[in-house]
Lab assay of single mutants.
Amino acid sequence: KPRTPFTTSQLLALERKFRQKQYLSIAERAEFSSSLNLTETQVKIWFQNRRAKAKR
């Protein structure tokens, strides 16, 4: 499956949310993903990858 090209504004929103909170609840993820026009899976995986990056 092809890589999702996130827009700059989506990335800024994702990073801002990640700084507030590294783990989103299912409800938060649902609301946040629809506000960004992304799927919940895209947001879930982005947060997983971002947490992995933060550990490195």
Rank of each mutant, 00 (worst) to 15 (best):
T39H: 09
T7W: 00
Q22H: 09
A27G: 12
R3D: 15
S34Q: 12
Q10K: 01
V43G: 00
K53I: 11
S35Y: 08
T41A: 11
K55V: 11
E31P: 04
A30H: 06
A13F: 03
V43C: 05
A13T: 09
K1G: 09
R19L: 15
R51E: 08
K1I: 15
L38I: 11
K53M: 08
E31T: 07
I45F: 10
F47I: 00
F6G: 04
K1L: 08
A30W: 07
L24H: 03
Q48I: 11
F18I: 02
Q20V: 06
N49E: 14
N49V: 10
L14K: 01
E28V: 01
E40L: 01
L36T: 06
S9A: 11
L38Q: 00
R16F: 12
K55H: 10
T39D: 13
R50I: 00
N37S: 10
A30T: 11
R56V: 14
R16N: 11
F32S: 03
K17I: 09
P5A: 12
W46F: 03
Q22T: 12
E31D: 08
F32P: 02
A30K: 06
A54F: 08
Q20N: 06
L36A: 09
P2D: 14
K21T: 13
K55T: 10
L36N: 07
W46C: 06
P2M: 08
V43S: 02
A30F: 09
A27P: 11
E40S: 05
P5M: 06
A27R: 04
L14S: 00
T7P: 02
F47V: 01
K53Y: 14
L38V: 09
L36H: 13
K1N: 15
I26R: 05
T7S: 07
T8Q: 05
L11P: 00
P5S: 11
S34T: 06
F6M: 07
A27Q: 11
R19E: 14
Q42P: 00
N37E: 07
R50A: 14
S35C: 08
S35P: 05
R16A: 15
Q20P: 02
R16E: 15
P5F: 08
Q10Y: 00
T41M: 09
L11M: 11
Q22E: 13
T4Y: 11
L38T: 06
T4W: 05
A54C: 09
T39I: 03
W46G: 02
K17Y: 06
K21P: 01
L36F: 09
R56S: 12
I26M: 13
A54E: 15
I26T: 14
K17P: 00
R19D: 08
S33C: 06
R19W: 11
K1D: 05
I26F: 14
T8R: 10
S9L: 10
R29T: 15
S35K: 13
K44I: 10
I26G: 14
Q22K: 06
I45N: 13
Q20C: 07
F32E: 01
R51F: 03
T39R: 04
T8F: 12
F6K: 01
A13V: 06
R3G: 15
E15M: 00
Q42F: 02
A13C: 08
F32M: 13
K21F: 03
K1Q: 02
S25M: 04
F32G: 00
E28W: 01
S9I: 12
A52K: 05
A27N: 08
P2C: 00
T7Q: 06
L11Y: 04
E28S: 03
L38W: 00
F32D: 01
Q20D: 13
R50F: 04
K53H: 14
I45G: 06
A52M: 08
R51V: 09
E28N: 00
A13E: 07
R56M: 14
T4V: 07
A30P: 04
I45P: 00
N49L: 06
R56C: 10
V43Q: 02
L12M: 15
L11H: 01
T41E: 15
K21A: 13
K21L: 04
L12E: 15
K17S: 05
F47A: 04
Q20T: 12
W46H: 00
L12W: 02
R51W: 05
S33P: 01
W46D: 06
L36P: 00
Q42W: 04
E15W: 06
K21H: 12
T8E: 14
S35I: 14
P5E: 14
T7A: 04
Q22Y: 05
L14C: 04
Q22V: 06
V43K: 00
L24K: 01
K17F: 07
T7D: 07
Y23K: 10
N49G: 07
K53R: 09
T41D: 14
K44S: 12
Q48C: 04
P2V: 10
R3K: 15
K17C: 07
A54S: 13
E31G: 02
K21D: 09
E15F: 00
K17H: 05
R19Y: 12
L38M: 11
Q48G: 06
R50M: 11
S35A: 09
L24R: 01
R50E: 13
K55A: 12
Q10M: 01
L11R: 00
L24N: 00
S25F: 03
T39G: 08
S9Q: 11
S9W: 09
N49C: 08
S35D: 05
R3T: 12
R29F: 15
R3A: 14
L14P: 00
R50V: 03
L36S: 04
S33F: 06
K1E: 08
K44D: 15
K17N: 01
K21N: 11
I26Q: 08
A13S: 06
Q42H: 14
I45R: 05
S34G: 10
Q20F: 06
E28Q: 05
Y23R: 09
R29E: 15
L24F: 03
W46A: 03
Q10D: 12
N49F: 05
A52V: 07
F32Q: 08
P2G: 08
A30S: 11
E40G: 04
Y23N: 10
S9N: 13
